[in-house]
Design a protein around this nucleic acid. Structure first.
Length: 511
DNA sequence: AGGCTACATA
């Protein structure tokens, strides 16, 4: 039954291709450039770096290292195996490149969280003016804009899509709607989505996930119903989206029902990732015991397991369940996964519970063992450039003095409205969100907001991206500031979107 | 002649 899945079929064929390739020497048949391009593609599908490298060596041995198509497939293979450096090395050594080779390297960067490099290469490709970008390339470029949250660059790419006549392409439309959602413009996503004549499962899933991330759980469920009515078969990813939507909107019963129907009505067996959504759902709404029991009963691969216990850990922290937090972090640390996050979240859970000593001990242990945390940062896009802000770091903050003055001024006004930010407890609890302690007033998103307020004209929605979760205190502050300055802000954090307007947030404080 | 490049999850 599972083999009805396109992805699995593809996977099986790739395995078969490699198996046959292994049989070639026995039959004394030498591979040519067509053989190589095909088997390297099989390695991409399977993400088998070791096999890919062996074949790469064979390519050089048999003298195909300057073949355009073979090299393009090598670039793609290294990219899909998350070895961008090797992809780049092959690309740089190519004597002749075409739009496919350029697409492969751009996709490699876009898919490996190096969107800036992808956009850089796209600009370079356009400057050379050898060929026009095609829909393959544009999809990757749009994808890069999505992960970077670069709305302006994304709109420019959308322009290129329209000029190239690709806007009715299903894949491109999916990429575009995803990009608009990830840039904080879910209304544009909806517009793009509604223009797709016969959306397949992927645009539907993208739209379901997009709505979920904005806390529009009902909209996600409506879209899901709509696709069922149109006889479009949902897949495992669709259900992750649906469950995610229920979770982010507090629709627990609905979520449980969906999980049941998943197997019964749609023939898709729930896997660890679906149960993780359920753990999240129960955890968020404070049903920690049920979440914990469920988590213990799930068998998963290491990656999925880390996700599962990480989810439970966050929920335990949120609801001050130190006992479960200890258990969840122990599992993560023992399996050597998400170690940093586990330490920090656990220490915060202790702090929230008033166990300051233990919390501090954990922090010292981290320092002693050299476990270091990536600093929190936020960024905003102004006129096609992106500005980055780090917590408490005024020296590298664009228009720093102006920004700090404005933030202090706003804090004064907030206090008149009853705001009590930066209390001792909050400062400590929020250290997970930012690397430096005791500077809650200068969390990276605040610097970003201050900068945006002095650089983006009134009436234009401010969009801020953050690499961590937004903290409660900043969330309160942003609500008040939206009212004081009469402006709208959208904040994209690692988890979801917050849309601040007239003193409140679309998440209604549930996230 | 053929082979290589694109979109949704956590």
């Amino acid at each position: 039954m599972d083999f009805a899945h396109g992805r699995l079929r593809r996977y099986g064929s790739a395995q078969m291709a490699l198996w046959l390739f292994g049989k070639m020497p026995e039959c004394s048949v030498l591979p040519n450039e067509f053989t190589f391009a095909t088997v390297i593609n099989a390695c991409s599908i399977l993400a088998h770096l070791r096999t890919g490298k062996k074949i790469h060596a064979l390519v050089e041995l048999l003298g195909f290292q300057s073949n355009l198509v073979v090299c393009s497939s090598l670039v793609d293979m290294y990219g899909k195996c998350n070895d961008v450096d090797h992809a780049r090395r092959v690309f740089d050594l190519m004597g002749c490149r075409n739009v496919v080779s350029w697409t492969s390297i751009i996709a490699a960067y876009a898919q490996n969280a190096q969107g800036d490099e992808a956009l850089q290469l796209f600009r370079e490709f356009n400057r050379l003016m050898l060929e026009r970008p095609n829909h393959f390339m544009l999809a990757s470029v749009v994808n890069a804009c999505a992960s970077l949250g670069r709305l302006v660059s994304g709109k420019v790419a959308h322009g290129a899509v329209i000029r190239g006549g690709y806007d009715s392409n299903d894949v491109i439309a999916s990429a575009l709607l995803d990009m608009y959602a990830k840039c904080g413009c879910v209304e544009y996503s909806d517009k793009v989505f509604r223009r797709i004549r016969n959306p397949s499962v992927i645009p539907y899933t993208s739209m379901i996930v997009a709505a979920a991330k904005y806390g529009l759980g009902r909209m996600s469920l409506q879209l899901f119903q709509e696709m069922i009515d149109r006889r479009i078969k949902p897949n495992d990813v669709t259900f992750v989206g649906v469950l995610h939507a229920c979770s982010h909107s507090g629709l627990v019963d609905e979520g449980l029902q969906q999980l049941e129907s998943m197997h019964e009505k749609h023939g898709i067996t729930p896997t660890a990732k679906h149960y993780t959504c359920l753990v999240d759902m129960l955890g968020r709404t404070g049903r920690l015991n049920e979440a914990y029991e469920l988590a213990k009963s799930i068998e998963a691969e290491p990656n999925q397991e880390a996700l599962l216990w990480g989810t439970l850990l966050s929920a335990s922290r949120l609801h001050g369940r130190v006992d479960i937090a200890v258990e969840a972090s122990r599992r993560l640390i023992d399996s050597n996964q998400q170690v940093v996050g586990a330490y920090v979240t656990l220490s915060n859970a202790y702090a929230l519970n008033g166990e300051w000593e233990t919390a501090h001990d954990l922090r010292s242990e981290m320092r002693r063992t050299g476990v270091r945390k990536e600093p929190g940062c936020s960024w905003v896009e102004v006129k096609d450039s992106s500005y980055v802000f780090y917590a408490g770091d005024v020296s590298s903050c664009a228009r720093g003095n102006e920004v700090v003055t404005l933030l202090r001024e706003l804090e004064g006004k907030m206090k008149q409205r009853g705001y009590v930010g930066g209390s001792r407890g909050l400062v400590f609890v929020d250290v997970e969100e930012e690397a430096k302690e005791g500077i809650v007033g200068l969390h990276s998103e605040r610097l970003a907001l201050g900068f945006a307020l002095v650089s983006i004209p009134k009436g234009v929605t401010i969009r801020i991206m953050k690499n961590l979760r937004m903290c409660r205190d900043c969330h309160e502050a942003f609500k008040l500031i939206s009212d004081i300055v009469e402006r709208e802000f959208v904040v994209r954090d690692v988890n979801r979107f917050h849309h601040f307007k007239s003193g409140s947030c679309t998440c209604r404080d549930f996230w």
